[in-house]
């Protein structure tokens, strides 16, 4: 399976996302924002970073990139797309997921190992989790406050489109402690925390077992690989 990772000007975590794809057992394909080719990939990751210096709005200019025409088209046809942090902001700006991300309510950048509760596993990227499971993956953002109007929020909650919720601490003022959502179809998932930073023992968050041993992020990537095998 080939999973494309799109690099935008100002992407930071594209290489980490490629590495996560490789460790999960798929072939990462580096894609370029200025291209119109998805190079035959089976799924896509929009990585974290600060594309275009967060000018205009986080993810806004990147969402107008040439390759986003193909990304949006593929997403609408059912290709699995995962947006992480800045990638989540791009998904929101491209209207591939509902809601928006605004500056953290406390005004500060936050960087921490964040506990999340898996609220729903019915998506291309979450089938290897269990509903109610608590996971810990790194979070690092300045504008991660998830918001949506009351009607949209009720629909996201009612339709099971809230995938992850912050546990213990709401780090950015997100409504209903929402850390990640999916589109109605379930192929597009966006979240602020970074699963690609918790995929290899020695480099992940601390756990009760050992320092830096957390690999809770790996299941995002193994989930999409398994789905591809099922569909093959």
């Amino acid at each position: 399976m080939k999973i494309g990772v799109v690099t935008f000007p100002g992407s930071l975590d594209d290489r980490d996302a490629q590495r996560a794809v490789r460790l999960a057992g798929a072939e990462p394909v580096a894609l370029w924002h200025g291209s119109h080719s998805l190079e035959g990939v089976d799924a896509l990751v929009l990585p974290g970073g600060f594309s275009y210096g967060d000018y205009l709005r986080c993810g806004a200019i990147a969402s107008l990139s040439p390759i986003m025409t193909e990304v949006i088209d593929a997403a609408n046809k059912g290709m699995p797309v995962l947006g992480i942090c800045n990638g989540f902001q791009m998904l929101a700006e491209a209207h591939l997921v509902d809601g928006g991300l605004i500056r953290n309510d406390h005004g500060n950048f936050v960087c921490r190992d964040q506990k999340l509760r898996v609220e729903n596993t019915d998506s291309a990227w979450t089938s290897d989790f269990a509903v109610g499971q608590e996971i810990t993956i790194p979070l690092k953002n300045g504008e991660g406050g998830f918001i949506a109007d009351a009607e949209t929020l009720a629909r996201l909650e009612g339709e099971g489109q809230v995938m992850f919720r912050y546990v213990d601490v709401n780090p950015n003022g997100s409504l209903n402690d929402i850390a990640g959502v999916r589109n109605a179809r379930g192929n597009v998932v966006g979240l602020m925390p970074h699963p690609e930073h918790a995929v290899e023992a020695g480099f992940g968050p601390d756990t009760d077992v050992a320092m830096r041993s957390g690999v809770d992020g790996l299941a995002f990537f193994t989930s999409v690989i398994k789905q591809a095998l099922v569909n093959a």
Binding site: L56, G99, G100
Partner: peptide
């Protein structure tokens, strides 16, 4: 559509 995002602005 571009200078503003109607979800937040």
């Amino acid at each position: 559509e571009i200078l503003s995002n109607s979800v937040i602005e």
